[in-house]
Simulated assay, not measured.
Amino acid sequence: MCPPTYFTVEYSINPWMDPSKPVSTELAVAQWTELKETYERLGHKVELIDAQPGLPDMVFAANSGTVIDGRVLGSRFRAPQRAAEADHFRRWFLEHSYRAVVMPTRTNEAEGDFTWTGQLLLAGTGFRTDPAAHAEAQEVLGVPVVSLQLVDPRFYHLDVALFVLDDQAERPQVCYYPEAFSAGSQRVLRRLFPDAVLATATDAECLGLNAVSDGRNVVLPVEATALADRLAERGFEPVFVDISELRKSGGGPKCCTMELRG
């Protein structure tokens, strides 16, 4: 995770961002701190990277690396405003003894568009990540990749349209918002995950799908109450956090969280 020390909205690279609206960095820091402490309270270890001036979106750490079995595929941002973030994260990995670190040649926004189910990597495209980056991820990470087409600009990354509930289960469980995907990708998702939790427009519009699950606890925005009820019916424990200020940049719990696997 990266603290939102310099968080603001000074440009617009997704439909959620409006530089004309006021933003409180102080409130963003408080909400981020609540999220970090929530993870720690649930028993998770949180590693930190220092925020850098001039990079207001660096708080969204999920976009800067994909880690599976200790192998790291870095990111290559589409928006020039975020491009410098990638090298800060690359150096962090090397300084923390990760040796299998590969920087991509194709545009990929890491866990923004790459979601590990425990068996395969779901890979989004349509707004940010280059489709050719999916093949690059398969070569670098050595895992099977399934491409999914995003069609709604509000849900510009895979991680605001889908999340994995349990990547340790024999049959991975996911939750997703069908209308964020093309018709063909919806058919793929139904085939792969016939028992998925399906989100509604209301769930998606508060970034309820930008959630983090550890297989039991699901950390999600406080507004996503109906989705939380459906998750509880499946045996998961919803854990609410307020991300209203961070949402002004189109981010939520998952955007702030890169998962270090192995």
Rank of each mutant, 00 (worst) to 15 (best):
P3Q: 01
T5E: 08
S12N: 12
L27K: 14
L27Y: 13
A30K: 09
K36D: 11
E40N: 10
R41W: 11
D57Q: 07
N63Y: 08
R71H: 06
R71N: 12
L73T: 00
F77Y: 14
R78S: 15
Q81Y: 14
H88K: 10
R91V: 11
E95N: 08
S97I: 13
E109S: 09
L122Q: 09
L122F: 14
A123C: 12
T125V: 13
R128E: 12
A137N: 04
Q138L: 13
L141Q: 03
V145Q: 07
L148R: 01
V151H: 02
V151C: 07
H157R: 06
V164R: 01
L165N: 04
D166Y: 05
A169D: 05
Q173W: 07
Q173M: 11
V174S: 01
C175L: 11
Y177N: 03
Y177E: 09
P178G: 04
S182K: 04
Q186F: 12
R187T: 13
V197R: 09
L198D: 10
L198H: 14
V212N: 01
V218M: 06
V218D: 02
V219P: 00
E223H: 12
A232E: 00
R234W: 01
G235L: 02
V239K: 00
D242T: 13
D242N: 10
R247E: 11
K248M: 12
G252Q: 07
K254P: 04
C255A: 04
T257C: 03
L260Q: 02
R261T: 06
